[in-house]
């Protein structure tokens, strides 16, 4: 068992070292993500300031401010280089080196993106959320925190499965980055990145909650800040799990097809 795990440990260690070489880049990513949230915070603060009531659609200003900070923090952990890694591997033949290693290609991909995620989660996402919760006096219950963690895990899985599917498409398309950028934009717009879904018309929000989009941003943020009841959070997590199964099947089917095309120079 120990011998079986050894190569994974070594690879993870190397990837952690590689990731921490660009510490300034990571710090800059965190800062710029928060600056990006700051724009929305200032805009919505102005909207609240000139609004006749203290709450809009039942959401107070402090919650909206906290919401955009949490969205930024969640965003940090969901950014991954999976698509570009796969595109490079498949189109430039780097995959040939990966395939001779004593572990599956998918495991190597996961270990390639894990260090970034773990570091950004520990030194970006967690401190920001703790600060927001403490400064905003949100006092979430243990159940809420657990639901928040579950929602983040489901969201990260969905994002990476979509990344895997689009990365795999580079076996057929010259450049998948354009299509993936379009999908990322749709997730940002419909996932609550520009405004909490509570501000959207009810019919739109309800329809979106059936898609895999809100679980990647709105649901975790709204859960930890108490903007949605636990029942909605649980329902969204269940919907997210169903989507994980669907996306995993698509990814598996696609990878089976690609595997047949692989050769020493890629595809």
């Amino acid at each position: 068992m120990n011998e079986w795990l050894k190569p994974y440990g070594s690879l993870l260690k190397i990837n952690f070292k590689n990731t921490t070489v660009y510490r300034a880049d990571m710090a800059l990513s965190t800062v710029l993500t928060l600056v990006s949230s700051l724009v929305f915070i200032l805009v919505w603060s102005a909207v609240y300031y000139f609004s006749s009531s203290t709450a809009i659609n039942g959401v107070a200003l402090i919650t909206t401010i906290a919401y955009f900070l949490v969205i930024g923090a969640v965003d940090l952990v969901e950014m991954s280089s999976l698509v570009s890694n796969m595109q490079n591997d498949l189109q430039y033949g780097n995959i040939a080196t990966s395939l001779i290693r004593p572990m599956s290609y998918v495991s190597q991909l996961i270990m390639g993106i894990a260090p970034d995620m773990v570091i950004l989660f520990c030194f970006g996402t967690v401190p920001i959320i703790v600060l927001v919760v403490l400064l905003g006096n949100f006092a979430p219950s243990i159940v809420t925190v657990l639901l928040f963690i579950a929602a983040i895990l489901v969201g990260v899985s969905i994002f990476n499965l979509i990344g895997f599917i689009f990365g795999g498409l580079s076996a057929y398309l010259t450049n998948v980055w354009g299509v993936y950028s379009a999908v990322s934009w749709i997730f940002a717009i419909a996932g609550g990145g520009i405004a909490p879904l509570a501000f959207f018309p009810h019919a739109v929000t309800n329809a979106l909650l059936l898609t895999p989009i809100p679980i990647t941003a709105y649901v975790p943020a709204a859960t930890i800040l108490g903007m949605i009841p636990s029942s909605i959070a649980i329902q969204s997590i269940v919907v997210g799990l169903v989507w994980i199964v669907i996306l995993a099947l698509i990814a598996w089917f696609e990878w089976t097809k690609i595997s047949k095309k692989l050769n020493a120079v890629g595809v």
């Binding site: 102005a46 909207v47 000139f50 659609n57 354009g178 950028s181 379009a182 501000f199």
Partner: peptide, 24 residues
């Protein structure tokens, strides 16, 4: 893809003006 930034701005403004008096 390059039109999405405009689309995002359009949705953002539409949401703001649909639920509030907007920006003064």
């Amino acid at each position: 893809v390059s039109t999405f930034s405009t689309l995002s701005g359009l949705i953002s403004i539409s949401v703001i003006y649909s639920i509030s008096g907007g920006l003064p």
